[in-house]
Design a protein around this nucleic acid. Sequence first.
DNA 1: ACCGAATGAGACATCAATGTCTCACCTGAT
DNA 2: ATCAGGTGAGACATTGATGTCTCATTCGGT
Lengths: 192, 192
Amino acid sequence: MSHSVYGRLMSVDRTQVLRAAAALLSRRATATMDEVARAAGIGRATLHRQFAGRDALVRALEELGIQELEAAHDRARTGEGPADEAVRRLVAEVEPVAPLLSFLVTENQLFEGDQQNEGWARLDARVSDLFRRGQEEGTFRIDLTPAWLTEALYGLIGSGAWAVQDGRVAAKDFQYMIVELLLGGARRSVEK
Amino acid sequence: MSHSVYGRLMSVDRTQVLRAAAALLSRRATATMDEVARAAGIGRATLHRQFAGRDALVRALEELGIQELEAAHDRARTGEGPADEAVRRLVAEVEPVAPLLSFLVTENQLFEGDQQNEGWARLDARVSDLFRRGQEEGTFRIDLTPAWLTEALYGLIGSGAWAVQDGRVAAKDFQYMIVELLLGGARRSVEK
DNA sequence: ACCGAATGAGACATCAATGTCTCACCTGAT
DNA sequence: ATCAGGTGAGACATTGATGTCTCATTCGGT
């Protein structure tokens, strides 16, 4: 009688299901609940037992994504050292989450209005702060707002993820392409 | 008996309907056929008479978007003058089509596989050629592939369109933010 | 070996959007 | 004034996904 307190005996791992769902939905955002279940190797009924519905699943994925992105921030120590190097570390840490991030951003665009997760605000603030810090340190230009740089970073990560998925860019170049464009731009520079 | 050859007497303007659909779907990609019809000020039946179904409507929007983007290219004369200035002109000309472009790109990502319009390949080639030309002229760095720069341009335009729509970036800064980041990057440069 | 809990499979109702059709009405051309 | 063609509104069937439920089976702990 020591079991069933927090759901022992569960043979399906909630996190594992979420990861499978993330992998599938990142490729095909319109995938069915049934497809998600099969991708996770479980029955549709079980999937429904764990997540009240599609909305709940997506919200759980949002939680997962936000969690992993914040972990990426922590690992990248975005508050330390030169801002441009911090950006470099951040992109490197975020890369594994890029497809999921791309999915969630698109999902957020589709369903406007109905209050977005506060976690996004926290993340936006962290990224934004990073760029602002870079501006104050004189590393980043001040004519591009931190808000826009944050948007641009998300956009480039999304574009990069899709480009890699479609084979238009080699996976090994993901970080380089994004960071170099974001930091250095396309124009050939005198320095460097 | 001079009428009804190509559909004279039509009181609904197909192009006008398409523009209304573009405006609505750019904001809410999941909008219903009924909503599209109302947004265009016509009945759902009429909408269906002009476009066999939702797919047909989206494909027509694709045609419209591609057409306008090619027109933008032409007006921007992307083949003339320094490549970086050509990019600047291109973004300026593309701005009005940005929301539609963003919608179509997302739509293309969702429905993978079923052969995409050849027009995209033509457009990709034109943008890609522009960046390649810039590289050959020594204006653009050669370590970022034209394919990636093309992706990045689309991504930044999409991000910009959404940021403007959500009020995170002022509409008047759209061009500047995109072009400056794309060409110059975020890092403060010695020159300029 | 037993037993409770969780699962998978499938049946089922529901719901929203789509696509088709009919019909009354309006409009523009003659 | 007449008439053909186009339209709007609504009824209707269809489809696909969702969510709920039941039940036999399986798995893990004892």
